[in-house]
Design a binder for these strands. Sequence first.
DNA 1: AACGACTACAACCGCTCTGCC
DNA 2: GGGCAGAGCGGTTGTAGTCGT
Length: 211
Amino acid sequence: MTAKREHKPIEAMTNMPTKKEISKGAWAPEEDKKLAEVIAIHGAKRWKIIAEKAGLNRCGKSCRLRWLNYLRPNIKRGNISDQEEDLIIRLHKLLGNRWSLIAGRLPGRTDNEVKNYWNSHLCKKINQKEKQSGASIGEESKGEKRTTEKADTVEVTREEKQSSCNNYTGGEESNTSFNVDDFFDFSNEDRLNLEWMSPFLEMDGRFTGMS
DNA sequence: AACGACTACAACCGCTCTGCC
DNA sequence: GGGCAGAGCGGTTGTAGTCGT
């Protein structure tokens, strides 16, 4: 289910009037092109000015997000490898929901992509593992129930699902406080080299033994 | 074939942080 | 020190594709 989705602009989907003619919703290819051109000239700074120069009816924030998550060079999209997945799981265990830090160790991956991947793939996986290990007896998987029961009998909101995912800390993280900078040398270019992780992979070994 | 539920992901929102004046 | 603007971050929402009945 990884088919590319082309979101239609909100204005195209609804008749909602635009607020001060600021566009929202999916970016059109022409918008991407304009934005990339302006950034090539002016650099990826001063997003408000970039938005104006590009003649886009977008706020600077939206331009920044689009650039960082989609248009930036060297962005890898999809196909998260097993190694990357493992790294995300381990880093999340250590850092919690600090997606930008996690993404910073995954070349070509954005915080948004890591976050989405976690919420849609990994949290389910981890919840299953937790259940298998018998961590929460009697605490049935609401998400799984939903596949077998009618929606009106089991109310599981997206919020509930997400909070259960986001609260996952590997069982210990919440009591583990450390200075991230002690562990991360962000000047290191070879971010997928797992050597940098060794100081705390040992510590991590105490955890669930997930790999 | 139709319909509703589920899923994936792009994009938005609100808050915090940082730097400048 | 206070106020402001820009940047960055995490949380959340909206939408369309896919799947199951």
